[in-house]
């Protein structure tokens, strides 16, 4: 069947209009739950960094977060890299802080939180809220074996965390992802020296 240009143009216009309309409707329908999910993911991440994540359900994450997390301040700093410093409250006192970090990985930005105890002597945990490293290589920093290595490490002013066997702890980097691994360490150390122990900055 031969058809002219007018028909082709007409057909494409109608098809595009129908598809765009259908997608816009789907987007509007899904938007509320997409927004809720984003918030929930962020809250879950903060709880993980503070070391209070035990496979909580969505509902538990909301209540736990509302109960025990409040905006906090470490050494007077309440905000870093556009994210608030958060405090883990228990009985009216802050027992730990989630300090935001941000830096560059091999491919793109790395963002997340480092949990530290209120007396600034130990880490609580590490979590990424944004990373885009190569899946299967650098992307493995988001696997739990890697993140779990950052629990309860000793921290102090002027001392940097490092991979390998250290006197009090041992951290393994990701195989085949040297750049991403060192970027993570550099970013965390930057956050420690600039926010947690700011006097040490040269």
């Amino acid at each position: 069947m031969k058809r002219g240009h007018v028909y082709t143009l007409f057909f494409m216009t109608i098809l595009t209009a129908v598809l765009v309309f259908a997608l816009a409707a789907a987007y509007e329908a899904f938007k509320p739950s997409i927004t809720t999910n984003k918030l929930l993911q962020e809250q879950r991440a903060v709880l993980y960094a503070l070391g209070i994540d035990d496979d909580l359900s969505d509902e538990e994450v909301r209540t736990r977060y509302a109960e025990s997390v409040q905006p906090g301040a470490v050494g007077g700093i309440t905000e870093a890299y556009g994210q608030p410093v958060l405090a883990h409250m228990e009985g009216g006192n802050a027992i730990a802080y989630a300090v935001p970090f941000e830096g560059s990985g091999l491919w793109g930005s790395l963002r997340g939180y480092l949990g530290i105890t209120a007396d600034l002597t130990e880490t609580r945990g590490l979590v990424f809220t944004y990373q885009n490293e190569t899946p299967g290589l650098g992307g493995r920093i988001d696997e739990s074996w890697f993140k779990e290595q950052f629990r309860n490490l000793p921290i102090a002013a002027g001392v940097e965390l490092a991979y390998g066997a250290n006197p009090e702890y041992k951290i393994d980097a990701v195989t085949g992802a040297t750049q991403t691994s060192s970027a993570v360490m550099r970013t965390i150390n930057k956050s420690l020296s600039e926010i947690v122990f700011p006097k040490e900055v040269k």
């Binding site: 560059s104 091999l106 650098g138 750049q179």
Partner: peptide, 18 residues
Amino acid sequence: APNINPIIIFIASIFTSN
């Protein structure tokens, strides 16, 4: 934009993350 040198992205996209 992330603060990454474009030359590094260039080399990395050829070799380290082909």
